[in-house]
C-alpha cells in the first residue's frame, strides 16, 4: 500500500539515543483477604538498555512480564520507583509535569489497545487534531490540513475525519492512534503491541505501514511485541523480558537465530514461524507455567522454576544473575549460558 510522502526536510533529523538505567516500578497489590499489608508487586526491576537513534528496538516477553509498565515509565505516564531514563541530554525521569508535557511533542506513545484509547465522543478529526491544539500548533485551518495529511500518511481516507471511533474497524482505529502520535512529528515513537489486538490479516498491513513510516520519517521506534515473528520482521535489536527483568539483549537477528538465555531459547523454539518446533507458540510460551509470582519471587534466578538448562546448580538458586556481555553487543542474564559453561 502506497504511503503518501510527508513534507519533511530530506535530511532526516533523527532524535537522540534513549538510555534506560536500572529502572524499577513497584505497585501495591490488592489487600489480602484476611489481614496483612498490601503486597508489593515489582512490575519491572532493574531494567537497563540503550536504544540507538533511528533504530527499531523491540521489547518481547510474555503477558505480565512488565512490558507496558516499562513503556509507561519511559513515556512519563507513571513515575518509576527507581532508576532513570535519559534521552539525549534530558533526564526524562527528572522532568516536572509541565516539562514532560512539552517533551511529549518529541516523544509519543501509542498505547496498547486501540479500542479503548480513542475517546468515543470525539470524531477522528478531533482526535488527530488534539495534540496540535495542545501545543498550539498552527491555526485551526492549518490543523485541518495537517490532520488530512497525517490521515493520508497512515493510509486513512480524509473523509473518515468525521467518523466516530465506534464506526471504525480495529485496523482503522490503530491507524487513527498512530496518526494522533505522528501528527506532532515526534522523534521517538513508543508502540505498545501495535498489532496484537488486530486480525491477523490486518496485522501485516499495519506492520508494513509502520516500517514504511519509519523509513520515510526517520524516527526511532521502541516497539513492544508479543510475537517473535513480528519481532523478526520489524526490529533491529531486542530486549527480552521475563518477570519484570531483562534476561537477554542484543541484535534481533543474532538473538532470534542463536538465542542464548534458556527463556529466549524456549520462546524461539515455541514460535512456529521461527523455531523448528511447530507447536502453538502462544500456548507453549504462555501457559507452560505462569511466571513466578512477582510477589513471592524466589531467591536466585527468577527463571529457575521453568529453566530447562539448570541441573540444580546451587548458584541458580542463590544468586540473581546479572546481565553479562557474552559476545560483543549481546548481554544475557544467566549463570550458565552459553550452554553448560558455568563461568559466571
Amino acid at each position: 500500500m502506497p504511503v503518501a510522502p510527508v513534507s519533511r526536510p530530506s535530511t532526516l533529523a533523527t532524535g537522540p539515543a534513549l538510555e534506560v538505567v536500572d529502572l524499577s516500578k513497584a505497585y501495591l497489590g490488592a489487600r489480602p483477604r484476611w489481614s496483612g499489608a498490601r503486597p508489593v508487586i515489582e512490575a519491572i526491576r532493574g531494567v537497563s538498555f540503550r536504544a540507538a537513534p533511528g533504530g527499531i528496538l523491540g521489547i518481547v516477553g510474555e503477558t505480565g512480564s512488565g512490558k507496558s509498565t516499562l513503556a509507561r515509565c519511559i513515556a512519563g505516564l507513571t513515575q518509576p520507583s527507581a532508576g532513570r531514563v535519559v534521552w539525549g541530554d534530558v533526564t526524562l525521569t527528572a522532568l516536572t509535569r509541565e516539562q514532560w508535557r512539552l517533551t511529549r511533542r518529541r516523544l509519543q506513545i501509542v498505547l496498547q489497545n486501540p479500542y479503548s484509547t480513542l475517546d468515543p465522543r470525539m470524531s477522528v478529526g478531533q482526535i488527530v487534531a488534539e495534540p496540535l491544539a495542545n501545543f498550539e500548533i498552527g491555526t485551526p485551518r492549518d490543523r485541518l490540513e495537517m490532520v488530512r495529511e497525517t490521515l493520508a500518511t497512515v493510509g486513512l481516507a480524509p473523509s473518515l475525519a468525521g467518523s466516530r471511533p465506534a464506526a471504525l474497524s480495529g485496523g482503522q482505529r490503530q491507524r487513527v492512534a498512530l496518526a494522533r502520535a505522528l501528527v506532532l512529528r515526534p522523534e521517538l515513537l513508543i508502540l505498545d503491541e501495535p498489532v496484537s489486538a488486530l486480525d491477523v490479516s490486518v496485522q501485516a498491513q499495519v506492520l508494513n505501514l509502520l516500517l514504511q513510516l519509519h523509513r520515510a520519517l526517520g524516527l526511532s521506534y521502541l516497539v513492544i511485541v508479543h510475537d517473535l515473528a513480528v519481532a523478526r520482521q520489524v526490529c533491529d535489536s531486542l530486549v527480552v523480558m521475563f518477570a519484570g527483568a531483562v534476561v537477554e539483549e542484543g541484535p534481533a537477528d543474532a538473538i532470534l537465530s542463536r538465542p542464548m538465555h534458556p527463556y529466549t531459547r524456549q520462546l524461539v523454539a515455541a514460535s512456529p514461524e521461527i523455531g523448528k518446533d511447530r507447536t502453538d507458540g502462544r500456548a507453549a510460551a504462555g501457559d507452560a507455567a505462569r511466571p513466578p509470582g512477582a510477589v513471592h519471587r524466589p531467591i536466585g534466578c527468577r527463571y529457575r522454576p521453568r529453566c530447562q538448562l539448570t541441573q540444580g546448580e546451587p548458584v541458580c538458586g542463590t544468586v540473581d544473575p546479572e546481565l553479562r556481555e557474552l559476545e560483543p553487543g549481546r548481554r544475557v542474564a544467566c549463570h550458565l549460558s552459553p550452554e553448560g559453561s558455568a563461568d559466571g
Binding site: L77, R101, N134, R180
Partner: peptide, 25 residues
C-alpha cells in the same frame, strides 16, 4: 479509562483533560 491516559500522552494540560475527556463522560 485508557483514552484519558492517551490524552495525557498527547500533551493535554490537566485542565483540558478534565473538561474535554472526563466531564463529558
Amino acid at each position: 479509562l485508557p483514552f484519558v491516559e492517551a490524552a495525557e500522552a498527547s500533551g493535554g494540560r490537566p485542565s483540558r483533560i478534565v473538561t474535554r475527556h472526563i466531564l463529558p463522560h
